[in-house]
């Protein structure tokens, strides 16, 4: 079974982002970029499936600017076999990404597609569900456990208040939650090896998909700041403040 993993290049999670002065977006010039952490978990899961003999090939795909090749090389260093970049400088929103991924799925015919549940830049949490809809297949979102069987996959999902288990027919789409696994550290020899692995660059036009953004961002701004409060010296003072000043007790 072939496994396709979609990865996104995002502002590194350690960077404190700031809106641009003109409010058109966030400052990304000279900012460290990395693979979306949830996508790292997705890649790790695919590689583990391969190591367990449950996946025959792991293909990673990214969509976006040329620099996404770095993200793909990271995935290859983690153990993926080959990579595909759908290269464009245009803004791609989740619906367009889902349509392009569907085209890649049609071409590659994987048994499983694994994505991160959300990207930590736009926090949309949409692409996996939309890809599953377009493919007409099952969706195992927010997965904390993935067990492929014969023609199907059993997925444990994190839901409000606990966990839920579903069984999906293959092909299926899975989105990874935090506790699915802990991604490995990439070792230097593997980084060197990854440089020699195949990386194919395609253009979105080749798929005949309309990627025009549907949502217009009118403004990007910082949220109202929460003013820091005061330190209290004792529990008695705290209780007094909560009762008489904040009036929440």
């Amino acid at each position: 079974m072939k496994v396709l993993v979609a990865v996104k290049r995002v502002v590194d999670y350690n960077v404190k982002v700031r809106p641009k002065a003109d409010g058109t977006g966030v400052e990304t010039a000279n900012v460290k970029m990395s693979m979306n952490p949830f996508d790292e978990i997705a890649v790790e899961e695919a590689v583990r499936l391969q190591e367990a003999g449950k996946a025959s090939e792991v293909v990673v795909v990214s969509l976006g600017v040329s620099a996404c090749q770095d993200t793909l090389r990271t995935a290859l260093a983690m153990g993926a076999d080959r990579a595909i970049l759908v290269e464009t400088d245009a803004e791609l929103q989740p619906l367009a990404v889902a349509k392009l991924l569907k085209a890649v799925v049609d071409k590659e015919q994987p048994g499983l597609v694994i994505l991160g549940k959300q990207a930590i830049d736009d926090d949309c949490n949409q692409t996996g569900q939309m890809l599953a809809a377009l493919l007409g297949c099952g969706q195992g979102t927010f997965a904390s456990k993935v067990e492929p069987g014969d023609g199907l996959v059993t997925v444990t999902r994190e839901v409000d208040g606990g966990a839920e288990t579903v069984e999906l027919k293959l092909p299926a789409v899975i989105t990874s939650d935090l506790r699915l696994n802990e991604p490995r550290y990439v070792k230097l020899p593997n980084i060197m090896k990854a440089k020699k692995k195949p990386l194919e660059v395609l253009k979105p036009e080749a798929f005949g998909v309309d990627v025009t953004p549907r949502l217009k961002t009118l403004k990007v701004a910082e949220p109202p700041k929460r003013a820091g409060g005061v330190k209290v010296a004792s529990v008695a003072e705290l209780v007094d403040k909560l009762k008489n000043v904040a009036q929440v007790l």
Binding site: V11, K16, V17, R18, P19, V26, I120, D121, D122, D123, R214, L215, K216, T217, L218, K219, V220, A221, E222, P223
Partner: peptide, 16 residues
């Protein structure tokens, strides 16, 4: 809607 873990707020318009 909040983006970047709520560090930034985006105002978006839908034409759908």
């Amino acid at each position: 809607r909040p983006i970047y873990a709520g560090n930034v707020l985006a105002t978006v318009q839908s034409a759908d």
